[in-house]
Nucleic acid binder design. Sequence first.
DNA 1: GAATCATAAATTGTATACAGTAACATATTC
DNA 2: GAATATGTTACTGTATACAATTTATGATTC
Lengths: 232, 232
Amino acid sequence: MAKAQSNVDRIHDRLRHMAADFEFKPDERINESTLATQLDASRTPIREALNRLVAEGYLTFQSGRGFFCRSLSPKRILDLYEARAAIECEAVRRSIERASDADIMAVVEHLDETEPAYDKIDDPVELLAMDEDFHVRLAKLSGNDELVRMLENLNGRIRYVRLINLKNLRSDRPVTIGEDANLSVHRTILSALSDRDVSRAIRATRNHIERRREEATEAVRIAYSQLYVPAD
Amino acid sequence: MAKAQSNVDRIHDRLRHMAADFEFKPDERINESTLATQLDASRTPIREALNRLVAEGYLTFQSGRGFFCRSLSPKRILDLYEARAAIECEAVRRSIERASDADIMAVVEHLDETEPAYDKIDDPVELLAMDEDFHVRLAKLSGNDELVRMLENLNGRIRYVRLINLKNLRSDRPVTIGEDANLSVHRTILSALSDRDVSRAIRATRNHIERRREEATEAVRIAYSQLYVPAD
DNA sequence: GAATCATAAATTGTATACAGTAACATATTC
DNA sequence: GAATATGTTACTGTATACAATTTATGATTC
């Protein structure tokens, strides 16, 4: 996604992260002037970026009242995970139809290369980025740009709660997320893909996402408590 | 979708239609000043709306060069239809889990009411609107707002080629779109839903959409010829 | 005549000003 | 003291101006 970034793109990126990480409080009205001075720009490009974020589902907009951060609810997280399952399963289905063996092998090799790192990496942010990267690569095998696009949008919006979830797991047990639970599932999906076994591949994908969903719904509660604790 | 419309919302709506109907030529650069005078507004709100349309996938944006109409290709239509299948099948799956009998019956009754009109209505625009309306109602049974949101976006972007397709069918045979091909499938989906028969419901949905897809891909070719014929 | 460069025109990118409106605080009435 | 009215503040919505950049035009060279 690295491209010739205009200023609006930069602001858009920055604001998207702020929205995803809930640097705005849920349902809070977003003050454009404050943002403008914070990001060292005028209100015009800020508003352009905010409008994009509305279309992307990060924010809402009310005529005459301005932009608002969308609230975070267990229901919405559930919705997003279901949408993700829909997109990824369709991607898998189409990958089996269309992806070449070579393309599939490339993803397998990428997994081989990155898998060892899972155990070493401590930073949840990096860990999550790797996981998202895998899923996007998987989706790209479908050759369907729209599915990829939608998945990237969903990833961005789910990221925050996944992060909360990862950080929490981490405090319980030392390094449990990378291995069996997650990675073997990734391999399962890929091997089913290689075998062109539609039902097995889809079942694996759906199970994988649904399991994550349950964790995420739990994470929302935790997220809420974190959001409203004043950082003193 | 009727809400308190601000000026930007109005412009956004208007521009979305213009983009969907390819009043801009594919890959053509969009002149902001011209639009501003056309829509009787300044460039500021126009640009805000254009930015939303970029996020919605209708337009592209290049730093320093401005906004462009996305090109229409058989490949992209295929992608959009696949995405639609993904979304609608997931919606059906969840509807079976969660929708009440009463809610399903409400959609059946709505179909009962509107079905007779299919034969009478001549206007392809209206016909298409009715079809989209049915599919959105179906999706809403899932209770998943994100799926509905995504479906509405896809509908908007597919609309033009579907319209071309409808107009073409119409010139061949008199009134063939409403009946067996389409409506009975709608009923099939609903009856499978009522029976809580997942595999039958999903199969019906997927078949329905895939059939439409084939027509649409063909329609792209026709659309192209229409787009580039100068209206003299 | 094609290619290259210089100049002019058009267009985008952003700051800013100001009008209109909503939110807030204060005063007034019962 | 609660509720309503009123004035003030703060913020949004949009037009406009201007700088920066790109595109178009024309001149010049080979």
